[in-house]
Design a protein around this nucleic acid. Structure first.
Lengths: 248, 248
DNA sequence: TCCTAAAAGATGTATAGACATAATAGGGCC
DNA sequence: GGCCCTATTATGTCTATACATCTTTTAGGA
């Protein structure tokens, strides 16, 4: 099962380091219900004595568990098992090429591009840049085994991404290219269902009105809009999978 | 912007603790691109000297950054800015009641229930338990402002959840009740689009064939299947939002 | 009695030092 | 030249200690 990259798991470790042993032990007591929600776990000094180690070691473990959201720490009172307040899950949005290849189908794509400037008012997609900013507008159909797999409509902020206007998107898909160019970024995803309109249906080779899964992603790097993309997956042929493990 | 609960942010802190200051500083250099992917960041001892602190403090910061996936640490060689290998995002799947209330609409629901035993072969939903296990089968329509908002089809493992057979699901929706009963759990979500069949369309008061967003969630606690639920949201009226911030 | 001040009890943060571990670089030997 | 052994170097883990901080409880005084 895929696990969040934000936290290291290694739940197997029956031995491993002392740190891991304590962590697994405590996590086990929480997820098994032995220590129910609201239960006050032993004080740091007591845990330190129990495991025969210093308080610092226990402290680091508890800090990690607190960061992972399994416990809440209150000064003077102690540490308490917290309620999983919100059902959150980690969605792994992999590269479309990888997605297709994991289905053991040959991958291909064809892209068309237009350079224009950000216009006033409504747009097909709304990139969060000021009016007049040069924008690269890309439409790309990803193919799996020769059949349309996904329609990608993308805007790239040419002021924000070095070399995007000269990039060759016949060999490398824009999404993949951007991933290697833009350092680190934050992103917002919006996932919904929509019926295919005439244009979309034609490009994906499906009937008009077919239910499609639409993923829209807006990406920023260092506060600047980088790109916005809408991925339309035809029908119920495709599903996103997200997993959640309390792990820490 | 909603942020992962797995990691604490506090990026504001221009002062704060020394730990936070160092963390923000280094993270800033990475996300801004000043330290590009693959760049070797200064050694712990050098950073310690630079910030005028001990190596342990720097070590804890770097450990945190490594856990968050921003850097990779290699013994002898040093620490390197890592490539955001996979576009992952944190999906906050909130309680349906909260979802509705955040739209400032009055919330209501009506549920019907059947107790039966796990049968062999295909089922509408497939709960991962052995044949013969008692199962609670619930169908629930969630209403927002009197209109159908979401159709919930749920199976609960009665052997795995204490008191579910006696629970009163007229006041508290099953999802909410389970969240408070089951200690900690792992979950797998499957998100796809589907056209409403006749039955679904009728219960949601929409036309047959309308595109729907379907979220299926399977939940385990301590290795045992707890529940499986399918949430069907009508049309393009509803969207899931997921965010990703490198933060740490 | 009630308000305030001090003490106690828990976590939070930081330090300096020690030893472990892993990978690399260099040197000596065949 | 090729190979192994060792020294070096950087991270990994842990300890013992110190002081800060926050909150509750207790004690004292008007």
């Amino acid at each position: 099962m895929s696990v969040s990259t934000l936290v290291t798991a290694e739940r197997d470790a029956e031995a491993g380091t002392l740190h891991q042993r304590i962590l697994n032990d405590i996590e086990g007591k929480i997820v098994s219900g032995e220590w129910p929600v609201g239960h006050r776990i032993p004080f740091e000094v007591d845990l330190a004595r129990e495991y025969g180690c210093s308080r610092m070691t226990v402290n680091k473990v508890l800090t990690q568990l607190a960061r992972a959201g399994l416990i809440e720490r209150v000064k003077k009172s102690g540490s308490f098992v917290s309620q999983p307040h919100t059902q959150s899950a980690v969605l792994e949005i992999s590269d479309i090429r990888k997605e297709v290849e994991s289905l053991k189908l040959p991958y291909a794509f064809n892209a068309s591009r237009v350079v224009r400037r950000k216009a006033q008012g409504a747009d097909r997609l709304l990139l969060d840049v000021s009016v007049g900013t040069p924008i690269l507008d890309i439409t790309c159909v990803h193919l799996a085994g020769g059949r349309p797999f996904c329609l990608e409509q993308r805007l790239i902020n040419l002021d924000g991404v070095e070399g995007a206007d000269r990039a060759d998107f016949t060999k490398v898909a824009p999404g993949q290219w951007l991933l290697s160019q833009v350092p680190w970024s934050s992103a917002e995803h919006r996932i919904h269902a929509a019926s295919a309109d005439a244009d979309t249906a034609e490009q994906l080779g499906i009937d008009k009105g077919t239910a499609c899964l639409v993923v829209e992603r807006r990406t920023w790097s260092a506060g600047n809009a980088v790109t916005q993309v809408r991925l339309t997956y035809p029908g119920d042929r495709h599903a996103l999978v997200a997993t959640f493990t309390p792990s820490s």
